[in-house]
Amino acid sequence: MIAALLEDKHLEELLRARVRQLLESGQISLFLGYERQESLPGILPSSVPCIIRDPSDVARLVFDRVCHRSLVKYLLDLPTGGDSKERRAGLVVRGCDSLALQRLIQDHRVSREEVYLLGIPCTGMVDKRKLSKVYPQSPSVSLESILDDTCLGCDTHNPVIYDELLCEKVSEAPSSVVDFVQVRRLEALSPDERYKVWEAEFSRCIRCFACRNVCPACDCRQCTLESNDPGWITKHTSISEQFMFHFIRAFHVAGRCVGCGECERVCPMGINIGELNRKFMKDIRELFGRDNPKMPRDVEPLGKFNPDDPEEFL
């Protein structure tokens, strides 16, 4: 049964009970979690973000393998200041979510004291496209065969920050992303060939900004893409503007991308955005000797000049 692969009823019960306590005790004023979307005939099961404010609503909460979207960006929608208590939020964090949250904390967009974190060691989410090929017909499917590629290459299964864990930690498997197979393949191309690859990719872009809006490293109060003066880019979609948009995006998350893979997952046009992020990760790893370039630190390699930094191009 595929449904059984997707769910963990025991974990869900723990989660609901804990959230109820936290809300009832007033420790948090709302909880960011997931709920199962209404079941539609012939359509894959899906869990979507939800906000729980009333303890009697905790039964809506689920945590399963189709809870894809990172919740941390929703914290930025919550009102701050004054007597607002909305920011005293609880949320579930997997490994990637905790890296994403650290990113927001480090960028002073969220303070650690505002959030209460229920950590969930995670062994991967399911890829909708892979699942759609087997759902609901196939009686037996291996979990590995339907896991998201990003999750298959994950090296941060356990949350790196949390207030409590809802279940036992899992062992960290060595990442396959760090092999950067596809990045090496692109690097081996000539500049002209590489240009052609990206020209084809970017020419499909419709600038819906789903990649930016879902990205935890894209947390600026005012995005440069929405600036009219100076207008770095306009709404024109000539190929030069497409390159400009993707360069701005990639450079702004360089050294700050936590590798959650959401940008690639949400892109309606199937653009290979993550490869740009991984190229930067690989460079940072090689130039600055960072073992895990995804891990947010106090001092980011591109955030501070160090006299020992490599600068062969100067």
């Binding site: 979507v48 973000p49 939800c50 906000i51 960006k73 929703y74 929608d77 419709i206 600038r207 819906c208 900004f209 789903a210 930016r212 809006n213 879902v214 949400v266 309606p268």
Partner: peptide, 13 residues
Amino acid sequence: SERCLSCGLCTYL
């Protein structure tokens, strides 16, 4: 509207 990402995907598609 709470879970909307404010992207333009739905309108452009």
